[in-house]
Design a protein around this nucleic acid. Structure first.
Lengths: 350, 350
DNA sequence: GAGATATCTGCTAACGTTTGCAGTCGGAGC
DNA sequence: GCTCCGACTGCAAACGTTAGCAGATATCTC
């Protein structure tokens, strides 16, 4: 591998001269710079980042810890974050936690060991204490979930509003018996979305039936199982609120397995309006999230913080335009999976 | 940030002793080891990987260059690759190229500068010469696409077979007028899939109508536009073969926009049987790919090569079980989007 | 022509880890 | 008691880059 020294030797000059030339230092003659640049390109010289990092700096890596990239929400976020980081010369290290605190800790150890510049974190429910200590050593921001014990800037959605929108839509259609399939209550997202559901139900003068409310781990399989439980009983709700991206996939699979007609027998509101929900057939009514915007704001927040703490920036003064936190609003996309309940239709017909 | 020296100073011993203790070297007293380990954990010492890399090694990073993570195929692959790499202590750097050779080159420069251990590459169609030169400096393997000028191990599918399966299925149902929407013919995948389509058509004694064959860039938008072109004419095919994951999404959107009844007016075979195609309604018949298996084989191939070239391995001898290349077979998943054409049904009824 | 200044150049040290080698200490054998 | 051996410990160098500082050359002024 070609080093700076090799280039210097080939040109018969000192390494420091080569360095100054490549860094476009004013104390180097233009003629020399051109010669050095040509030689470097010719020899295929590529700077040794680790060596640069060793001289006190931080690497050009930004860690992104997410539970699962196959989840539409996270893959969309990863795309936006990666593009934003690339614009600033950073590369993204993809860290999958599978929502396991152990894996989260291991990944974070790796990131700190690599002296990454910053971390964007989607924390697990029961984060290890060591994980928090590791995060303290690196600039970081939180995406979607607010982790207990972490005080870093947070970028996410108004989670309670997302389920409230779904309930209000269904209540307006005439539904009174609503089921709910959501994620882990240990997570801020799971807890908030369920709070939104319960509060919206109460506001409509309805009781949330415990037997029709399930809280899974958030993945597709748990959504499937939970939906089977909610809909498998003798009496079942006329509408179902889903409060998770992968949960929605699992729930729809379960509904197909149970051969329940949608929206005739059951209205369904999905979560995170990914393309798939609109593609096919009459589409799934769902709560949409501006995922790209959230992720972009999150990345921009971290990048602004990094710029502010870099030596070139005006120290002590807060960077203008650096967003330290943001809450985005979810919205409802009406499609073919919701309709007035049969009872209501019959009443109308009479 | 705590260094090895700091730990040594706190304990009143030499840095090298701390190092040997943490590396579990036999020449250090067990009592000392325990004391050092306790102190290191207490002080929150995390090794400085860049410094380690500087001593001649390579970093614990593996680059993954893909066009787009939002694509089901690539997000599933990224998940499998990331998990496999994590098992070996590597972390994955996510590099998005957007199929632009410039971005690909920039990303690769970053990877080489970071002295990453290896790269898994999904090459763009017209790779820069510099990109090839950069890849020459790093162990790498190719995923899905075979890039011109690259001779590294390749892991992918029998692309021609994927479209052949689709054509054979449709021909067996009685279709004779088939449309095709595929990806860039510059890419090995685009070219091979179209070859498979044409050859299967020829084998069935059918001509592939040029006006019904479109080749887009492979993203959702191009699939939508291409489908509009294929189906927008006065006379249209009775069945459509889709040869790309995102193209399928775009095509289904276009079909909805055109209000064409599936499978009554048009049979559709999708590509890459992602969950979404099975979730909803009667489902989309599609060509399935063992994406996880391909990605896993690819990662394993690279990891085996890295193990073989690491100093600890028996030099000169080929590692047993190291897969240097693999072709996986696609399969057809029959669902509700394909049926016999109306003409055939009428003929039968008569 | 000599000195002063401006422009450019080269030497050297430092970052933190890792490894080889030399040194020290204690115990055991003669 | 002396020597030899083994077990353990500490010193120093190297990786490639970068920055500060001193030195060298050329140009300009008096």
């Amino acid at each position: 591998m070609i080093t700076l020294k090799d280039v210097a030797r080939a040109l018969g000059v000192a390494p420091s001269k080569v360095w100054l030339a490549l860094a476009d230092h004013p104390h180097v003659h233009e003629r020399t710079k051109a010669r050095v640049r040509a030689a470097a390109a010719e020899m295929g010289y590529v700077g040794h980042l680790p060596a640069r990092v060793m001289r006190g700096g931080r690497s050009a890596l930004i860690g992104l810890t997410i539970p699962d990239v196959r989840n539409d929400f996270y893959s969309t976020a990863a795309q936006a974050i990666s593009e934003a980081c690339a614009r600033d010369g950073y590369q993204v290290v993809l860290c999958l936690t599978g929502d396991a605190p152990d894996r989260e800790r291991d990944q974070l150890r790796g990131l700190v060991a690599a002296r990454c510049a910053g971390v964007i974190v989607v924390g697990t429910g029961r984060m290890h204490r060591e994980t928090v200590a590791l995060l303290d050593q690196v600039p970081h921001v939180q995406l979607i979930r607010r982790a207990r014990g972490l005080h870093a800037p947070w970028f996410g959605i108004d989670d309670a509003a997302s389920t409230r929108l779904a309930v209000e839509h269904l209540v307006a259609l005439g539904h009174r018996d609503l089921g709910y399939v959501g994620g882990d209550l240990e997570l801020s997202t799971g807890a908030e979305r369920f709070r939104g559901f319960r509060e919206a139900m109460a506001a409509a003068g309805l009781a949330s039936t415990a037997r029709w409310c399930e809280h899974g781990s958030g993945d597709e399989a748990s959504g499937r199982v939970a939906t089977h439980r909610v809909l498998g009983g003798a009496r079942r709700p006329t509408a179902l609120v889903l409060a998770g991206s992968r949960l929605t996939a699992g729930a729809l699979a379960a509904i197909r397995e149970l051969e329940i007609g949608v929206p005739r027998e059951l209205s369904v509101v999905g979560f995170n309006d990914a393309g798939a929900l609109g593609w096919w057939g009459s589409g799934v009514t769902s709560v949409g999230l501006p995922v790209g915007d959230i992720a972009l704001a999150c990345a921009s927040g971290l990048l602004a913080a990094l710029r502010a703490s870099s030596p070139g920036a005006p120290a002590g003064e807060t960077q203008a335009g650096a967003q330290v936190a943001a809450t985005f609003a979810p919205y409802l996309v009406e499609r073919g999976s919701t309709a007035a309940p049969e009872s209501r239709k019959r009443a109308r017909a009479a």
